[in-house]
């Protein structure tokens, strides 16, 4: 015998909507502002700048640790009156060349790797060999091969971009579900069309993180290489700007150079990668 068998049945009539009280209520403007990631990050940045300013004032030694305000001043001065912008443009140009070429090669290598077994072996062997090799270690060799021009910088940049991008892309390709692969084949897609129309979008979260890592690696490599490499054919990059100012003991300018690298990083992360992320993997529900 069921315990509740003697209980009466009952059916509930729909409640009038006015009985609910508040069903939907707009959130306060404060909550809305705080929900904006950019605002929260800006707050963090302001706090960091503040901490820097306070610490530097207590150290009170412009030769070892200039204040935030004097760094910003030096940045402004360097950009308007000095040659910071030309240095920056030079660096960016080389950076984009190396980054673009690295991505193109990574695309080629991962396409080969997913299409042929031998290509897969090739990618795995090459990444195992070269991925642990610091790009800077290749610079002396690069100088011998490509001389004192942009060529050697681009070469080390390609090296630093190629492996992380190829590795991420490849693991993304391999993680594409069997069902999606079969759907692509069902449409008769093969070879390049299959890679471009099915594998690349399906593996886009991995590809994007590969591109981010590649970008960070490229910056590191470039600044380090420029510090060692110095100036070529009359123009140097940001690394050279930092080195040049250090020898002249313009420490605020050194900080301004470093701050520029940081600012570019922030702009690219939030202005480029985040926008791409929002318009792709987030909109598609492939990443929370």
């Amino acid at each position: 015998m069921l315990a509740g068998a003697s209980r009466p049945e009952w059916v509930r009539e729909d409640a009038m909507s006015e009985d609910f009280g508040v069903v939907e209520k707009p959130i306060t403007w404060w909550e809305r502002v705080w929900n904006n990631g950019a605002v929260r990050k800006a707050v963090i940045l302001i706090l960091l700048a503040l901490a820097w300013e306070i610490y530097a004032r207590r150290v009170n030694n412009a030769l070892t640790f200039p204040t935030f305000s004097s760094t910003v001043e030096a940045l402004w001065d360097g950009a308007v009156h000095g040659n910071l912008l030309t240095r920056l443009l030079f660096s960016l140009k080389v950076l984009l060349m190396g980054y673009g070429l690295g991505i193109a090669l990574a695309a080629l290598l991962s396409t080969l790797a997913i299409s042929f077994r031998l290509g897969n072996d090739l990618l795995e062997t090459l990444t195992a060999m070269f991925s642990p090799l610091p790009a800077i270690a290749l610079l002396p060799l690069s100088l011998i091969w490509f001389g004192l021009g942009n060529g050697s910088l681009v070469f080390v940049l390609v090296h630093s971009v190629l492996w992380p991008v190829a590795l991420n892309t490849h693991s993304g390709f391999r993680a594409v579900s069997n069902t999606l692969r079969m759907v692509g084949k069902n449409y008769g897609l093969r070879g390049f069309g299959y890679v471009a129309k099915i594998l690349i979008p399906a593996a886009f979260p991995n590809i994007l993180s590969g591109l981010k890592i590649g970008w960070a690696f490229a910056w590191r490599t470039l600044i380090a290489a420029e510090l060692i490499f110095g100036v070529s054919s009359g123009t140097g990059g940001l690394g050279w700007y930092i080195l040049e100012n250090k020898t002249q003991l313009e420490i605020a300018n050194v900080f301004a150079g470093l701050l520029t690298v940081i600012l570019i990083g922030l702009v690219v992360e939030n202005g480029v990668f985040r926008v791409i992320e929002q318009r792709t993997v987030r909109r598609w529900g492939m990443q929370a």
């Binding site: 579900s177 069902t179 999606l180 079969m182 759907v183 084949k185 069902n186 449409y187 008769g188 099915i198 979008p201 399906a202 886009f204 792709t280 598609w284 529900g285 492939m286």
Partner: peptide
């Protein structure tokens, strides 16, 4: 070989292209 003269409908919900 696979071809569009035979269209598959799978059990898995991830058969649609999410993008």
């Amino acid at each position: 070989r696979p071809g569009s003269d035979r269209m598959m409908v799978f059990q898995e919900f991830d058969q649609l292209l999410p993008w």
